[in-house]
Design a protein around this nucleic acid. Structure first.
Lengths: 354, 354
DNA sequence: GCACTATGGCAACAGCGTTGCTTAAGTGGG
DNA sequence: CCCACTTAAGCAACGCTGTTGCCATAGTGC
């Protein structure tokens, strides 16, 4: 790491604390305490951030017997990002400001049966409508969330469930050309987990799993405050975890996959049973990764939130939270794919220079 | 991060590359390429390391039309560490040099039934015998590996399997006082995984799982090149992953735990079946964490290595390696608990300053 | 023997966080 | 109301980081 990387690192550290502080803001001295830097260093860093328009002064704290601390706040309008969720039959697009607040939403039906170029042209049109035809000032890029599996690093779809014929299609580069801005592609569960990590739904714990039970069952893992994607960006394949060695055959070819068992119970109208199966899978996760929390989301969980929350908490032995579907956690998380690197929240486990 | 932390970071980066290069050594320019630093910066860093006696020049590479590159090597004798494995009935102690090479081994029977202070006094005696009564120059500390569960951060044992009455005993601080050097405590599987990560057994992949099948079944996870310990240092509890929802009750109170099923198959003399069960668990790990390799070890694996390797590779779909039991992977890994931080290989997922 | 190539050190430099000091802006006792 | 005291934040000088430009060294190959 060289000096310019050091500067970026510390600026990101400060920005992340400013982001987490939200409307309350944070003082220079608090930043110094939390980063371990000296107050003077923080003054210089925040001066640069203020000069760049990313941070502004916003009032003062009450005095504690001396000069009151000046409150600093992230300037939400200094940047924004688009987030797009592509689902089997619908598209959700959101515009988020730098603070992660939703500025606009747009939902539309989608037919993924078409050829990828046509579908993506459609996506670009919808994003244009979301932006009302003009490029908002400070647009940093667009994040796209799809069901997966796909390759985050290259932005190429693989055998994305519900999107036939997409295997190997360069979604990221195609859409980047259409939109004229940087595009990042990731799995829907990863996007949601990242968004939840940044929104504070995960509470104090900096490691949690987001479990999404909708058309399928998937997971996004946040370990040590950052999204864990694994060696080939395929981590979080939770639906095909074997939890019943001699169970019924799954469409993936293996037996006793948790997704098959869970969805089967749901289909039979036994949410209690589905919740207990999901709880067993969650308990496996908690034991294996020693994570501090589980967050549940998806259509099927939303249909019986109390049952799922109670059974999973019982089995896993950690706090369980619900992702509010109305807040569009996946589309919002997709936009956070663009914003997160500014705050040093890119994935910390990616292969490093050694 | 401040400048002194930056210097430490870059020094660790260089040392880790030197360590990985082993006897072959590495030139300044290669270090520059791999770290992303300029050649001149590397010259300064290696000059400091040479002045500290950690690195020495060792010959030259063949010329490629100009001045031949000078080879740098880690000076193995610049430091050493003790590693101790405490098992149910035996103690293994090793002395490793800075390069991770084994200098000495000592094995002795152990009765963990006694009170912790008496057992640890015994351990300290054995370490004294390993060191032949004198403190070797450059001794950095002692790492201790036990079956777990235990708390790495505080160095306190919890309900360590095979060690009754140890719950809550401050193993690290007690032993540090007896030995007069820093002590680090961790689970046996974590120690082994760390040792394997540093020894190159994991090959190119910087994420893998070490699965140990002996008296029990446990795992150590290396993600992104560093040991993953989780929020409360309890990660890697693999033995009680549920793989058979309605399976037989386990002593942990849950049903269908992989350890119970696996060991039951072994007890019945069906290693093929045990290997297939272990394979299913390994496949779960690979899917969930997208790791690039599985490493197997432990007494039961050693009794039928081909069967376990073949079945696990088949199920998990990634390369499977064997940890050589004769190389004392757990005791050696325990010593690496002390050495690894020098090379920036402390756990990268520990809670960060934000 | 000489031109060429590649490595690595020396010296000057820009930029990072740190230190010592000063100024600003409050509180609270007399 | 004044003034001592406390706390926050900026200015200037500094030490140390990696970087840049230049040069000495040590090989190859015509």
């Amino acid at each position: 790491m060289n000096l310019s990387a050091l500067r970026g690192h510390n600026a990101a550290l400060a920005l992340d604390l400013l982001r987490a502080a939200g409307r309350d803001g944070i003082s220079r001295l608090e930043l110094a305490e939390r980063t371990g830097l000296t107050p003077q260093a923080v003054s210089k860093i925040t001066a640069r951030l203020r000069a760049a328009g990313l941070v502004s002064e916003a009032g003062h704290r009450a005095s504690t017997g001396g000069k009151p601390r000046t409150v600093l706040r992230l300037a939400p309008s200094a940047g924004c990002a688009v987030g797009v969720r592509l689902d089997r039959d619908a598209l959700t697009a959101v515009l988020l400001d730098l603070a992660g607040e939703r500025v606009r939403v747009r939902e539309a039906p989608l037919d993924p049966g078409g050829e990828p170029p046509a579908v993506l042209a459609r996506v670009a049109d919808e994003v244009g409508l979301l932006l009302r035809g003009e490029r908002p000032p400070g647009l940093l890029g667009a994040g796209v969330a799809m069901p997966g599996p796909l390759d985050h690093a290259s932005g190429v779809a693989r055998r994305v469930t519900g999107f036939p014929h997409w295997d190997g299609f360069p979604v990221r580069d195609t859409l980047a050309a259409l939109l004229g801005c940087p595009v990042v592609l990731d799995k829907d569960t990863n996007a949601a987990a990242l968004g939840l990590a940044l929104s504070g739904v995960a509470g104090e714990s900096d490691s949690f799993a987001y479990l999404h039970l909708g058309t399928g069952l998937g997971a996004g893992l946040v370990l040590g405050g950052g999204l864990y994607r694994g060696a080939r960006t395929g981590a979080g394949e939770f639906g095909h975890q074997t939890v019943q060695l001699d169970g019924p055959e799954c469409r993936c070819g293996r037996r006793g996959c948790i997704e098959a068992l869970c969805l089967d119970a749901v289909r039979r109208g036994e949410p209690e049973r589905a919740a207990r199966i999901l709880g067993a899978g969650a308990a496996n996760l908690v034991a294996l990764l020693d994570i501090g929390r589980i967050v549940l989301g998806g259509r099927i969980v939303a249909a019986a939130p109390d049952v799922f929350t109670a059974r999973v908490a019982e089995a896993a032995g950690v706090p369980v939270a619900l992702a509010d579907g109305g807040a569009h956690p996946i589309a919002g998380g997709a936009a956070q794919l663009i914003l997160a690197p500014l705050f040093g929240r890119g994935d910390p486990y990616s292969p490093k220079i050694r």
